[in-house]
């Protein structure tokens, strides 16, 4: 019995000794973590602790910045992500950003299917319709937009736009979804909708979430990472970390002494 549970929670992403430096200044130092499948993992820490850099290193978006050096490795299902092309990798690792960023020239429908369209992946109309409906249902947006699929995505409210962006990431059926403070630009009602959604999504996906908001991490994450000055201070079950932190720095952060 215990074996099968361990089987379900096997790591999908193993980060080993990962260090990232901008111009010789280390933003992430020797981080090793195993992200388990079908969980929500929150990365917490004060501003400038390297949490966004770590997240972006997982789909190699950090390589857009200049003078970056990456050491160590990150294995997605046993394969080092730095050995495959970033284009291929990003199709397995969806990403959702701080601010909703639907493509302004595209309709809601085209936004959801954008990953296929822009990559030139040929699909039949019926398949496309299915992907769009499934993705929009997954983010609980289908009922709200099913009559206006061909309107511009930018006409939606901020919260709807963010769910549209999540649907756009889901359309590709990625294995991992990376989220960089996905609710920081949303109002409380939209935030709680997105949070409910994330809890639901972990049934089929693995979610890694950067958050500034400790109570959000406590509400929705299964595992938490606490980072400070580029180092991984503590990693463990969210429940344990919030009730019984091991490192004094974690405790100070969680009790609001800094950050």
């Amino acid at each position: 019995m215990t074996n099968s549970i361990a089987e379900v929670k096997k790591p999908i992403l193993s980060i080993k000794d990962l260090s990232i430096a901008y111009d010789k200044h280390y933003a992430v130092k020797n981080v090793s973590v195993e992200i388990k499948k079908n969980t929500v993992t929150a990365i917490m820490g004060p501003s400038g602790c390297g949490k966004s850099t770590l997240l972006r290193a997982l789909n190699r978006m950090h390589e857009l910045y200049e003078n970056i050096t990456t050491e160590g490795e990150a294995l997605l299902n046993g394969q080092n992500i730095y050995d495959i092309s970033p284009i291929k990798l990003r199709r397995h690792m969806g990403m959702v950003f701080q601010r909703p960023n639907p493509f302004p020239t595209m309709s809601i429908y085209d936004n959801v299917i954008a990953g296929y369209k822009l990559n030139g992946i040929r699909t039949k109309k019926k398949e496309r319709d299915e992907i769009v409906e499934r993705s929009l249902r997954d983010v609980a947006l289908w009922d709200e937009v099913k009559d206006s699929l061909y309107k511009k995505g930018t006409f939606l409210s901020g919260g709807q736009q963010q769910r549209l962006c999540i649907a756009r990431a889901l359309a590709f059926s990625p294995e991992v979804i990376l989220m960089d403070e996905p609710t920081s630009a949303l109002d409380p009602i939209a935030t709680s909708k997105v949070e409910d959604l994330l809890v639901k999504l972990k049934e089929n996906y693995t979610i890694v979430l950067v958050t500034h908001n400790m109570s959000q991490a406590a509400r929705i994450s299964d595992y938490s990472l606490f980072m400070y000055l580029g180092e991984l201070v503590e990693y463990g079950k969210t429940k344990n970390m919030f009730t019984n932190p091991i490192d004094p720095r974690t405790e100070e952060y969680l009790t609001g002494k800094f950050g």
Binding site: M61, R90, M95, N101, F103, N119, A169, F172
Partner: peptide, 14 residues
């Protein structure tokens, strides 16, 4: 906005 470029790159678009 830069975020639009990132959105497309994150979808694995060349």
């Amino acid at each position: 906005p830069q975020t639009l470029k990132e959105a497309a790159l994150a979808l694995g678009v060349p």
